[in-house]
């Protein structure tokens, strides 16, 4: 079983190196010719992200999956999601806002949580009319990361998680974050501050 994971990981690793080469060539061309090829770079990063997520899904859904928890500055994490997604949403006429009121470090799997947030923002961007907001707050000792949009909302929030791989991974990822005997949770609902879908990741 481990062997299969190793083979998959090494394939993904090679593909990501190739994609990174492509991205760096584009960055060089942008600099040399003073052009913005952000869309092409975004497409490359999205492809790499998709590859990683597939591997992550496989890894997390097996038994005995473990996280790589590091102290993470929450504001920095949110800022990176903004950096990765804001321009792409803008092209679709959607504004991505950020509201982070958490100043401290939080123990979490920085890369997987970042990946899940990127995925949630992409999804929200597809359904939003004009706005998506990413926020981070502390509630009852939990870190709450929310992605809200002003779209029509989930058809049925209670079954939404079963539909998408991203949400399935989100649920598993939240549950694996355990601290002081409590574990995290993924909550989906409609309404929120923007009136559309609400994606909420709670981490203890």
């Amino acid at each position: 079983m481990h062997r299969l994971l190793d083979i998959l990981a090494s394939g993904v690793h090679d593909a990501k190196n190739q994609l990174f080469a492509a991205e760096s060539m584009i960055a060089t061309a942008e600099k040399a010719h003073g052009v913005d090829l952000g869309e092409a770079r975004y497409a490359i990063e999205a492809a790499a992200g998709r590859l990683s997520r597939t591997l992550t899904t496989y890894r997390l859904l097996r038994h005995g999956a473990s996280l790589a928890v590091v102290p993470t500055v929450v504001a920095d994490l949110c800022e990176e999601v903004l950096l990765a997604q804001a321009k792409q949403l803008e092209r679709a006429g959607v504004r991505l806002g950020l509201a982070c009121s958490v100043l401290d470090e939080w123990p979490l799997d920085r890369d997987l949580v970042g990946d899940i947030l990127n995925n949630a923002v992409q999804n929200a961007g597809r359904h939003a009319r004009s706005r998506v907001e990413l926020s981070a707050v502390l509630e009852g000792g939990d870190l709450v990361l929310r992605v809200e949009d002003d779209g029509p909302g989930f058809a049925d929030p209670s079954t939404a998680a079963a539909g998408g791989t991203g949400l399935l991974v989100g649920e598993r990822l939240a549950a694996l974050h355990v601290r002081r005997g409590r574990s995290g949770a993924l909550l989906l609902c409609n309404g929120g501050r923007l009136g559309g879908a609400v994606f909420e990741l709670r981490l203890p």
């Binding site: 990981a9 690793h13 990174f20 991205e23 960055a27 473990s66 799997d109 890369d111």
Partner: peptide, 29 residues
């Protein structure tokens, strides 16, 4: 780093680099 193996290392060990970054990444990042 290109894969997740290093994240497991950095989460565990006492001696860590200033930061680590996963490929591919943009110049902005």
């Amino acid at each position: 780093t290109g894969e997740q193996a290093y994240e497991q290392v950095v989460a565990a060990v006492e001696l860590v680099p200033d930061d680590y970054i996963i490929k591919p990444f943009s110049p902005d990042k």
